Simulated assay, not measured.
Amino acid sequence: MSRIRAAYWDPDGATFGIPTFWWRGAPPGYATRRQLRAAGLRPGGQPIAAQVLWQGVGGTRAAYLYRVDLARPKRTATTAQLRAIRAALLARRTCPTCRQVCSYYIPRSLGECTDCAYPQEAAA
């Protein structure tokens, strides 16, 4: 075991406060948020169970681990939520001046479509 790995080996949490492992050294049963999401799970309000530390660019990096057995299934959006999202995205593409639905999102800096914001260029 290298010195760098040994510096991050604290499976009982005596040094860092929570169980700490080196890069790719966590035992089975722990997963990061991204790994949980890939498995269709979410942490579900559980506290951080462990961490992985490694030497990265700019210093020591950390990834927090959650227990897989306490993870809950990922929630799915209801039909009403999906309908509301669709309506909000449509509103972002609708020009308030000419009421045309654009193929792009209206720039917030302009507040209207480019044809209404720059009428001289649209006529040319």
Rank of each mutant, 00 (worst) to 15 (best):
V101C: 14
R42V: 02
A39N: 07
D10W: 00
A117Q: 04
M1P: 15
P28F: 04
G44T: 04
T15H: 08
Y118N: 14
Y8T: 02
I85V: 06
G45H: 02
A91K: 15
Q120M: 09
W22F: 08
S103Y: 12
R83Y: 07
R42K: 06
L65C: 03
E112T: 10
A80T: 11
T79R: 15
Q35L: 02
E121H: 14
L90M: 10
A84G: 11
A71F: 05
W54A: 12
R93A: 11
T20M: 05
R72C: 05
V101R: 13
D10H: 03
Q46P: 09
Y66P: 04
L89R: 15
Y64I: 00
C98M: 08
L110Q: 14
L89E: 15
I4C: 09
R86F: 07
R42N: 03
T78E: 11
R93G: 07
P96E: 07
P107Y: 01
V68Q: 02
R61V: 02
R93V: 00
A71D: 01
L53N: 03
Y30F: 10
D12L: 03
R3E: 13
I48T: 11
T79F: 01
R93E: 10
R61P: 09
R34K: 12
P107A: 00
T97W: 02
R86D: 11
R86S: 13
Y8D: 05
Q81F: 09
P28H: 02
D12Q: 05
I18D: 06
G29K: 06
P107F: 01
R5L: 12
E121L: 12
P11G: 00
A62S: 14
T32W: 00
Q100Y: 09
Y8H: 11
I48H: 08
V68A: 00
Q120A: 15
Y104P: 15
T20K: 04
T94E: 10
L36P: 07
R75W: 06
R34Y: 06
G56M: 13
S2Q: 08
E112W: 12
Y8V: 02
I48K: 15
R5G: 14
I4A: 08
Q46L: 05
A63K: 04
T15V: 10
Y64N: 10
Q46I: 01
R93I: 05
M1K: 13
A84H: 11
P119L: 03
D12K: 05
T79H: 08
C113P: 13
A6H: 12
T76L: 10
A123F: 04
R34E: 11
T32D: 00
G45Y: 03
G111F: 03
